[in-house]
């Protein structure tokens, strides 16, 4: 809320700043809370994992489901705000769903790696929580991406979060269909993230029991 009030003054060039900011913020919140929850899910349930034959993957998956549920719930007030700013729902808004799917895959991959490493090294959690605010400010969520100077543009380009946030914003704020290039990038990143995260999880899994 404070965000919206202050920054809408700071960026007078952006029309409907609250809609602009929220179309990034709700997905950022989805990313930061879900990744943190998945990361902690194994050690929080270590008592169960130590004494019952439950596949460890159950806990990260359930956290992802919970995160998705919360995200969809936050769509309701968001839709009301959109309506308040005179933006009527459109059939192309449904494009958010496949983007959410890719984003969820991306988050799952990253978080599986974090969760698995967190079992061995407990400071991974602290490190991640310290890095999250940095990611928040480095990603154009509260400010428009063209505010970034040309020579620093590459930082945005290599930041996976930017591409997802950008896709969401294209659909929800601009009311447009993301370009084919955007689709390739977000699908490829989700795929890569799951493959790498899943592989790390699989390799580290046999040692979980000794390190919970």
């Amino acid at each position: 809320m404070i965000f919206l009030l202050i920054f809408s003054e700071a960026f007078p060039q952006i029309q409907n700043y609250p809609v602009f900011a929220l179309s990034g913020l709700i997905f950022w919140t989805f990313f930061s809370t879900t990744s943190a929850h998945i990361m902690g899910s194994l050690i929080e349930n270590s008592a169960v994992l130590r004494s019952l034959a439950v596949p460890p993957l159950v806990f990260p998956v359930s956290q992802l489901m919970a995160g998705l549920f919360n995200l969809f719930m936050s769509f309701i007030p968001f839709a009301i705000i959109l309506h308040f700013f005179g933006r009527l729902p459109h059939i192309s808004d449904l494009l958010v769903l496949p983007i959410v799917l890719c984003f969820a895959g991306f988050i799952m991959g990253v978080s599986l790696a974090l969760a698995a490493l967190n079992v061995y090294f407990r400071d991974i959690g602290l490190l991640w929580n310290a890095l999250l605010p940095a990611f928040f400010y480095i990603t154009p969520i509260a400010y428009p991406s063209d505010l970034i100077p040309e020579r620093m543009r590459w930082i945005t380009e290599v930041n996976p979060l930017y591409h997802y946030i950008n896709a969401f914003r294209t659909v929800l704020y601009d009311g447009l269909v993301p370009t084919a290039e955007t689709w390739y990038v977000i699908i490829a990143m989700a795929f890569l993230s799951i493959v790498i995260g899943g592989y790390l999880f699989k390799v580290l899994r046999p040692g979980f029991i000794a390190n919970y």
Partner: peptide
């Protein structure tokens, strides 16, 4: 209980296992 997998060798159990490794877990 199937919580740990053998690194080498075989484990064969012909039936449903109910582990009670700690009470009140979960």
């Amino acid at each position: 209980a199937g919580i740990v997998e053998p690194t080498k060798g075989h484990v064969r159990i012909n039936g449903h296992v109910a582990p009670m490794l700690a009470l009140g877990v979960g």
